[in-house]
């Protein structure tokens, strides 16, 4: 596959060129660090931050969208066209999360057209991490700071230049569009990349992940959930900043005989998440709701999709207003599994 380098002074020009025919999303500075947003002016792009504070799932799975509109007894489809989109500078954990989301929205052969229309037009250039963030643990959950999963191309920050490697045909085509600005990567560059990759992986603290699903199942009635549940405030922050959380709600909004059906993010931490029309709520305690979030990611998803739905980005940890730390929870769960 194509391997090239781009002088960092040319990054803006590079992005301007690639942004001509598509929407460009990249990290920009924000009061909370960096955020992934659509950029019209590439000079605003900031590649020095680690994880953006919010994940990039919003680009393919927006916080809310109209599924269809209706007037009295007639439903009107919404147009499903989406523009070509480039996500530049996504961290490998976020890129990998897209691959996991793909599995959900194409599960058992049922394609979600709303998701796929955007996803199919999305090209991801991931940026490998040289140093981990304060709560990163990607390598413990099957990812890597230099991971390639979910990305169409992978970039490395080598100081003065960016090294770019195409990973898919789409990525190769993209990089070729800007070939006037890049140079062929030398053996020296490739060695530097290898060294950076080894360096990055070394810096991550391993977190023991409970992989024994049977033992996890046993933990259902463990005391640990009561303990964690009493701390959990029941907000949706962890789910909303998570790149792999994908639960949604569907509601109708009406106004004078017209209306629309809206899909919006939802969170299992909310007490109303499981409230039935009858008034019955099968998850009565925050302990049960917190357990659901953890077991969904580390037990039910492995059962359904073959992999845990956590990419180790650490956002739920840095943003939790109650100071809950998923890594510590996993550690406790792991030791629980060993004992039983």
């Amino acid at each position: 596959m194509l391997e090239m380098t781009l002088d960092k002074s040319k990054v803006q020009e590079f992005l301007r060129l690639l942004g001509q025919n598509r929407r460009l999303f990249a990290p920009v500075k924000d009061r909370m660090g960096t955020k992934f947003s659509e950029v019209a002016d590439p000079s605003l792009v900031c590649l020095d931050g680690l994880n953006t504070n919010l994940s990039l799932k919003e680009v393919v799975f927006p916080q809310w969208e109209t599924l269809y509109t209706f007037e009295e007894d007639q439903a009107n489809e919404v147009k499903l066209a989406a523009q070509e989109t480039l996500l530049f500078g996504a961290r490998p954990c976020d890129a990998r999360a897209l691959e996991l989301l793909d599995r959900v929205f194409t599960w058992e052969g049922i394609d979600d057209p709303y998701y796929l229309r955007r996803r199919e037009k999305t090209c991801v250039v991931a940026l490998a991490c040289n140093t981990p963030g304060e709560a990163c643990f990607c390598s413990s959950v099957g990812g890597s700071p230099v991971g390639e999963v979910g990305a169409d191309a992978l970039a490395f920050d080598l100081g003065k230049q960016l090294y770019l490697r195409a990973l898919t045909e789409r990525g190769e085509a993209l990089l070729k569009e800007a070939s006037t600005l890049t140079e062929k990567a030398t053996e020296e560059d490739k060695q530097a990349v290898q060294q950076a990759a080894a360096e990055a992986e070394k810096q991550l603290q391993p977190v023991p992940i409970p992989e024994d699903l049977a033992a996890l199942k046993e933990s259902f009635d463990a005391e640990i959930w009561e303990d964690l549940g009493q701390k959990c405030l029941g907000c949706g922050t962890c789910a909303y900043v998570c790149p792999t959380c994908h639960c949604f709600d569907i509601t109708d909004e009406t106004k004078k005989g017209v209306g629309r059906r809206v899909r919006s993010w939802d969170s299992c931490a909310f007490s109303l998440f499981t409230l039935h029309g009858s008034g019955h709520n099968p998850r009565t305690t925050q302990a049960a709701r917190y357990r659901q979030r953890v077991l969904h990611k580390f037990l039910y998803c492995p059962e359904n999709f073959g992999e845990a739905f956590c990419v180790g980005c650490g956002r739920c940890i840095t943003n939790c207003p109650a100071g809950l730390d998923l890594r510590a929870v996993l550690e406790r769960l792991g030791s629980l599994a060993k004992v039983t």
């Binding site: 109209t66 919404v78 147009k79 909004e253 106004k255 209306g259």
Partner: peptide
Amino acid sequence: IKKFEEVA
């Protein structure tokens, strides 16, 4: 005012 525009 909440607008009900088409979102595609």
